[in-house]
Nucleic acid binder design. Sequence first.
DNA 1: AATCCTTTGACTTTAACTGATTTTAACTAT
DNA 2: ATAGTTAAAATCAGTTAAAGTCAAAGGATT
Lengths: 154, 154
Amino acid sequence: MNNISDLIERYLKQLLAESKREFVEVQRSDLALRFSCVPSQINYVLTTRFSAGHGYFVESRRGSGGYIRIIKIPLDRKSDMVLELCDVIGEAISQADADGVIKRLLEEKLISLREARVMHAAVDGNILKLSMPVRDKLRALLLKAMIKSILRGG
Amino acid sequence: MNNISDLIERYLKQLLAESKREFVEVQRSDLALRFSCVPSQINYVLTTRFSAGHGYFVESRRGSGGYIRIIKIPLDRKSDMVLELCDVIGEAISQADADGVIKRLLEEKLISLREARVMHAAVDGNILKLSMPVRDKLRALLLKAMIKSILRGG
DNA sequence: AATCCTTTGACTTTAACTGATTTTAACTAT
DNA sequence: ATAGTTAAAATCAGTTAAAGTCAAAGGATT
């Protein structure tokens, strides 16, 4: 347990713990310098330890003034349910099932009626004019991304 | 928010917010001086943050007494807005432009922060893992459908 | 030995910034 | 009026400063 990735992970979680905000902003090249590693190792750490499944969101911007922002998802009933639903959705989902998921979120009051409408519109079969195997996969990706997005605080 | 372009953007939007009119007039060289940058950077900011998709018109005049006028397109009636936006979106749209449209809806307070996040998640290029010509078309379809779903009726 | 996790680096993409050159409008002096 | 000068803004290609991707090599674990 003494590899660089673990150290970077600990460091970032330390930063998050110390921060008053629910997120922390770093620069990839700075981090790489601090830990004497190659910049892409930061990406490795992010994907293996700061995924949504782990309870984190990662946003970033390239170009000069670029940054990486790591957002901690507050763990409560809401996030539990959302992550669980993401599990249920899996790799692919039919429109009917997607509607079911959205309805469930609405009933649980985790999303508003307007949010439900937006999600429904995105997931609609008339919009996703693609052949069958691809369509259900894309629908799953879309739905999961959308419902995860409501986990961000603020 | 650490680069000059973001600062210039904020400054201009501040000016617009403070102004009683729906437009603001500046001089490119003045702005460049105020922010210690090269004049052409102002043009960069204008094209990347004050395009029609973002909800702004830019007029200007060269020569002595020249100026740049930034006009915020007034959009009060919701139905008009939907039509106009869908027009802007067209058949296909890049992610950057889609983000611009969403940002604008948010600034106009026609959607909530959470709704903006849901839309953003749906329109994200990492989700829409498709080859280029198809992806931008799908993104346009999605965005239009989502906007209509929420701004019509309501 | 096989598999999984980590580390590396070459290549790509994106965003911001720069500066030389061009275009336009107004002003000035013939 | 006309030509010349000056004071703006526009353009666009090029540079710099980030972050992302991906596959291959290296280590650790079972």
